[in-house]
Design a protein around this nucleic acid. Structure first.
Length: 582
RNA sequence: GCCGUCGUAGCUUAGCGGUAAAGCACGUCAUUGGUAAUGACGAGACCAAGGGUUCGAUCCCCUUCGACGGCUCCA
């Protein structure tokens, strides 16, 4: 079925939903607002005027839809005047829409099917009773939604429905959703014992377990390894600051709702840092720099704190304590291209190593609206061309978003496509001409003059928490050997094999392999099952055969039985694989 | 924050006006087992917290805390 027709089907179902709800809850007691087709189905936003509607009511609405459907044999449409429309609907939401349509000078049309009339621009099936398979749709859930998505407006009840061409496609979608749920990082995080939350500590404040901390440290180490090679140095800052720092940077105004504030006993106001750039500027500003000493590239993995609304929090994807692998490069404008090129390379290496497919997106200024930006047209053109060139050098073509740049500079965002086809916004490279202005950052140039510098913001993972969420779901918890909190488990078959097993265990441990010895008295099947459930990349079974041959039998999570090999072969295989981060 | 669903042992869940049940995990004992669950026994929860209704509350009502799905798809 072509896209338009599917949209028409979904849109028609939105009408059917409204009709069914109207019959059950009585048209004069509720106010219908609007109901479009969406990605996997449709929804309708309804003001139930105080009546409660819950998920448990969906069944009866859905049944009513099926009952009405056979009577929906054709759509009639009619063009009416603004007055007629206003009189007909008598509902402030519809009237608002009608007025807007009239103001735009468009025709007002109403569509009627099975005796139900709704304001509508059109786009339906010719004969719903024939064209809609009653098994191909399903009401999904109810949710609150503000009228027109604005928090200041009244909260309406939104009923979501799923709809496809036929039952098979609906089932396929439901199955895919189940698959995604199996990968859910919140679920895997618990099963693999990576992180936890405590009601006492608070919402949005994740606590990382020993296993989770190994992951974080290794990921951060990987980023650092790449940065070190690019000339970065590490710095370290406190997590709080006087409010004056953010007044100077402009964040106090911009971030005021998101700041955790602290009152000191001497009645000064401090804040938990929501970002690191202002602190880092003060490290740069500790002395006067010659152009010969630039760039100064400061890296620091540290937490920032943002007072997000509780309803926005979720797993590791949206938290209140965020670990950023942050870095800021202080350099001259003409060096910024090269610096961004280095970062681009780091981003590609990092994400590429996990098998993400990266797509760059370039956010540009709008030349028609220069007053909205800092700096001259020429400076913007130059920096944007530099970014475009970097992307082209990498043989890629960016999606360009005009007018999407921040007022202080253009940026490259990266979208990473994961193993099940979802896009995630990950790293950002941002050129900043504002912060140096506000903090008066400069260097002394060749002519002995003070020259304004620029800053490049360069987080690779961005937030380690969010990156972990994306990575866990991308890999379905199957971390590569170098990242696995436990890399291999040695399993003796019987107690008399413990000694040899211990020897293997010690050999691996001495070589910094994260190895466990499972010499508990339990059956072999159970131990293997545990290794699989914990998604260990490898396990080694030791019994009579291995001791006799002075070898080990290795099995891999991904490659299955690898058979017997010598201890030396085992060790070099592991060390090689870890080194290559495969 | 707002709407909806929800909070019962470490985990997954059952129960439901008369103070709680199961599987896994855990402990003890027996089993000497070659690749996804050996058996028996045992310990473990004042049912998120606080308040109310009731002779009596895990269950009903209120408040708070926390979790999940929405609040971006525009007749």
């Amino acid at each position: 079925m072509e896209k338009d027709k599917l949209n028409n089907l979904r849109h028609t179902l939105a009408h059917l939903l409204a009709a069914a709800v109207g019959e059950i809850y009585k048209f004069d007691k509720i106010k219908l607002t609007l109901g479009p087709s969406i990605d996997n189905g449709f929804y309708y936003d309804i003001d139930f005027c105080g009546e409660k509607v819950a998920d448990s009511d969906l069944k009866k609405i859905e049944d009513r839809m099926r009952k009405i459907l056979p009577k929906w044999t054709e759509f009639e449409h009619k063009e009416i005047s603004k007055e007629e429309a206003t009189n007909f609907f008598k509902n402030e939401y519809k009237v608002e829409l009608i007025n807007e349509i009239a103001d735009r000078g468009e025709k007002i049309t109403v569509y009627t099917c099975g005796g139900f009339t709704d304001l509508c621009r059109g786009g339906h099936l010719e004969n719903p009773s024939k064209e809609i398979n009653p098994d191909s749709f399903k009401l999904d859930r109810v949710a609150g939604a503000y009228w027109r998505g604005d928090e200041k407006n009244k909260m309406l009840t939104r009923i979501y429905g799923l709809a496809f061409e036929n039952k098979e496609e609906l089932d396929a979608y439901l199955k895919q959703r189940e698959e995604a749920e199996k990968r859910d990082h919140k679920k895997l995080g618990k099963e693999l014992d990576l992180f936890t939350f405590s009601d006492l500590v608070g919402a949005g404040l994740p606590l990382f377990t020993p296993n989770g901390t190994i992951l974080r440290d290794l990921l951060d180490g990987f980023v650092w390894e790449l940065r070190k090679a690019a000339g970065y140095v590490k710095v370290d800052i406190p997590h709080i600051t006087k409010k004056e720092l953010y007044e100077t940077s402009g964040h106090w105004e911009k971030f005021k709702d998101d700041l955790f504030k602290i009152n000191t006993r001497e009645e000064h106001v401090f804040a938990m840092k929501p970002m690191n750039c202002p602190h880092h500027t003060q490290i740069y500003n500790r002395k006067q720099w010659s152009y010969k000493e630039l760039p100064q590239a400061y890296a620091e993995t540290t937490k920032v704190y943002r007072d997000e609304q509780t309803g926005e929090l979720g797993g590791l994807s949206r938290v209140r304590s965020i670990t950023q692998d942050d870095a800021h490069v202080f350099c001259r404008l003409n060096q910024s291209g090269e610096e961004m090129r280095k970062i681009y390379k780091i981003v590609k290496t990092f994400y590429g190593s996990f098998g993400f497919i990266l797509k760059p997106r370039l956010s540009l200024h709008d030349p028609k609206n220069m007053q909205a930006y800092l700096g001259t047209e020429e400076v913007w053109q130059n920096s944007e061309n530099a970014l475009r060139k970097i992307i082209e050098e990498n043989g890629e073509k960016a999606i360009e978003a005009l007018g999407e740049a921040a007022f202080y500079g253009p940026k490259i965002d990266f979208l990473a496509k994961d193993a099940i086809g979802r896009d995630h916004q990950v790293a950002t490279i941002q050129l900043d001409m504002n912060m140096p202005e506000r903090f008066n950052l400069y260097c002394i140039n060749e002519k002995g003059e003070q020259e304004r510098i620029v800053m490049v913001h360069a987080a690779i993972m961005g937030s380690i928490e969010r990156f972990l969420a994306v990575l866990i779901e991308h890999l379905a918890g199957n971390f590569p050997l170098w990242l696995s909190p436990v890399q291999v488990k040695v399993i003796p078959v019987r107690e008399n094999h413990n000694e040899y097993a211990k020897e293997i265990f010690n050999l691996l441990k001495e070589n910094n392999i994260r190895v466990e010895l499972d010499d508990e008295e339990a059956n072999l099947g159970g131990k293997v099952r545990d290794a699989k459930n914990n998604k260990l990349p490898y396990w080694i079974v030791i019994g009579d055969k291995e001791i006799e041959a002075n070898k080990v039998t290795l099995e891999s999570r991904d490659a299955g039985q690898l058979g017997q090999m010598s201890k030396e072969e085992l060790l070099s295989k592991f060390l090689e694989e870890i080194k290559n981060k495969k």
